[in-house]
Amino acid sequence: MKILLVEDDKKIGEELSFQLELLGYKTSRVENFEKVIDDFNKSDFSLVIMDLKLPYKNGFYWTSEIRKVSKVPIIFLTSASDDINLISAINYGADDFIAKPFSMQVLHSKIIAILRRSFDFNDVDDLKLKYENLVLDRDKMILEIDSKSIALSKNEFLIMEILLESPRKIVSREKIMDKLWATESFIDDNTLTVNINRIRKKIKALGLDNLIHTKKGVGYYIK
């Protein structure tokens, strides 16, 4: 899934891009705010996050321009959270609205909900992450293999997601903790170890005693 970020505040744009990529999305940031539609047409985006107050022309204008050529989902991101702006955003073609300052957990929930409504996930199966015959269901937060399944807590799910996105590759402890912090799960090094041990105990019920391996002093990997 690739997301176009239309945000003129460089610091916010860079941080938003960083956090979304930790969550597994690909992002592209608009640099020339006179030609937003040109950046949009350069790639096949699954979602647009659009700021309201932009140089040259505002987010309402660019939303209406995108709507002339695409039905891609658009989330408005703005500090102007009054009802008039909300109504205007919807009237111009936005699908949702989130006010600054915002929680990444709330934004991520909105992204998942919009993508689920907008695309046929039964066909593209984007809500399921697969490794061999193991399936991580992103919608239900469960891990499945053959006819067996286990439920995961939020932190357990996020850890399994980042490991399964790069199977057989070592994922550093720092990268895992960055992802958890991005969703406001404020954990430290010791808490990460506890969560990994809990996952290992849970997946034994699936017959996966040796799924998660440790690279001492570095991180973890799936094999």
Results as ranks from 00 to 15, higher is better:
Gly24Thr: 08
Thr183Ile: 06
Phe121Ile: 14
Asp83Gly: 11
Ile114Tyr: 03
Phe33Gly: 02
Ala151Lys: 10
Lys216Ala: 10
Phe45Ala: 07
Asp95Tyr: 13
Leu86Met: 14
Asn85Met: 10
Ile199Asp: 00
Thr63Met: 08
Asp83Cys: 10
Ser118Val: 01
Asp83Ile: 15
Phe18Met: 14
Phe186Tyr: 06
Asp146Lys: 08
Leu115Glu: 11
Val171Phe: 08
Lys216Tyr: 12
Ile170Ser: 08
Phe76His: 07
Phe97Glu: 02
Ile90Gly: 07
Ala99Glu: 13
Lys68Leu: 15
Val69His: 08
Lys42Thr: 02
Ala99Val: 12
Val124Met: 12
Lys216Val: 12
Ile87Cys: 02
Pro101Gln: 01
Val135Arg: 09
Ile176Gly: 00
Thr191Ala: 12
Glu31Tyr: 01
Val69Asn: 10
Lys11Ser: 08
Val69Glu: 10
Lys71Val: 04
Ile90Val: 14
Leu4Asp: 03
Leu129Gln: 09
Val171Thr: 12
Thr183Ala: 02
Phe97Trp: 03
Ser153Trp: 02
Asp120Phe: 15
Ser17Gly: 11
Ser149Ile: 11
Leu127Gly: 14
Asp126Val: 06
Asp51Ile: 12
Lys2Arg: 10
Ser64Thr: 13
Ile150Arg: 02
Glu156Met: 04
Ser147Glu: 08
Val6Trp: 00
Asp44Met: 15
Val106Trp: 04
Leu20Gly: 01
Ser166Arg: 15
Asp123Thr: 14
Met50Tyr: 02
Ile111Met: 09
Leu127Ser: 14
Gly24Met: 09
Asn32Tyr: 13
Phe40Met: 12
Ile37Asp: 04
Leu164Phe: 05
Lys130Met: 12
Asp126Asn: 10
Pro167His: 06
Glu21Trp: 01
Ile112Cys: 05
Phe121Ser: 10
Ser147Val: 06
Arg168Asp: 04
Glu15Gly: 13
Leu86Val: 15
Lys57Asn: 03
Ser103Phe: 00
Leu52His: 05
Ile159Thr: 04
Asp95Trp: 10
Ala205Gln: 14
Ala80Ser: 06
Leu47Ala: 09
Leu163Ser: 01
Ile37Phe: 06
Asp83Pro: 12
Phe157Val: 04
Ile98Gly: 14
Ser46Gln: 13
Glu31Trp: 00
Asn195Lys: 12
Phe40His: 09
Trp62Val: 00
Glu161Val: 13
Glu156Trp: 01
Lys68Ile: 15
Ile75Arg: 03
Val106Ile: 14
Val69Leu: 09
Asp139Arg: 11
Glu165Ala: 02
Met141Gly: 09
Glu174Arg: 14
Asp95Lys: 12
Arg173Met: 13
Met141Cys: 13
Ile74Ala: 07
Ile66Gly: 10
Lys204Cys: 13
Ile142Phe: 03
Leu129Lys: 10
Val194Arg: 14
Gly13Lys: 00
Thr193Cys: 05
Lys130His: 09
Arg117Trp: 07
Ala151Leu: 12
Lys100Met: 13
Leu134Asn: 05
Arg29Val: 10
Met50Phe: 04
Met50Asn: 02
Leu211Ile: 15
Ile176Lys: 00
Ala99Gly: 11
